[in-house]
């Protein structure tokens, strides 16, 4: 009896461990890879940022901020070429924050432009429909769909 209890406990512990490892790795995978849209750019990071700024305006959006992560991280000794644009517009902002005051956790939309180890420039973003779906609000989902289209259009123009 004692032996079977021990066996049962061991089996449960093993199963729990496997389940936890499985869940955590699956979670990490989806957040770090599956939702990210990446578009190749044949230009440098700086030129791509400059081009994107023009495209943002042409698509009815504004660049609210430009975080030069490469410069910021140079203070830690790492050398990378990465910039992030924070993109939105007053109308979308008004609608999103009216629908949910906590929308700030995912907007403005981030577009990351970076150079990988092979010198290739990438434009990466997570579609707003993925991040905004967390609010479970049909009004927000509608705006998110519109933002997805705009981002797709913008990044589709990158050469």
């Amino acid at each position: 009896m004692i032996t079977s209890n021990k066996y049962l406990k061991s089996t449960l512990a093993l199963l729990s461990a496997v389940l936890l490892i499985g869940l955590s790795s699956q979670n990490g995978f989806s957040q770090s890879n599956s939702d990210i849209v990446k578009v190749k750019s044949s230009s440098s990071v700086e030129q791509t940022v400059s081009n994107l700024k023009k495209m943002v305006s042409n698509n009815g959006m504004m660049v609210m901020g430009n975080l030069n992560q490469g410069q910021v991280l140079s203070m830690t000794g790492i050398s990378i070429n990465s910039q992030t644009l924070f993109v939105g517009n007053p109308q979308v902002g008004k609608k999103l924050f009216s629908a949910d005051a906590g929308a700030g956790v995912v907007v403005p939309v981030r577009i990351n432009i970076y150079e990988d180890a092979d010198g290739q420039t990438w434009v990466a973003y997570i579609p707003p429909s993925k991040t905004l779906s967390n609010f479970n609000n049909p009004k927000i989902d509608k705006i998110a769909g519109m933002l997805d289209q705009k981002l797709q259009k913008m990044t589709g123009m990158i050469q």
Partner: peptide, 16 residues
């Protein structure tokens, strides 16, 4: 102008 276009209010602000 692009100033109005960038605000996301449609052509010549027609969405608002």
């Amino acid at each position: 102008s692009p100033a109005v276009n960038a605000m996301g209010v449609g052509f010549m602000g027609s969405d608002l």
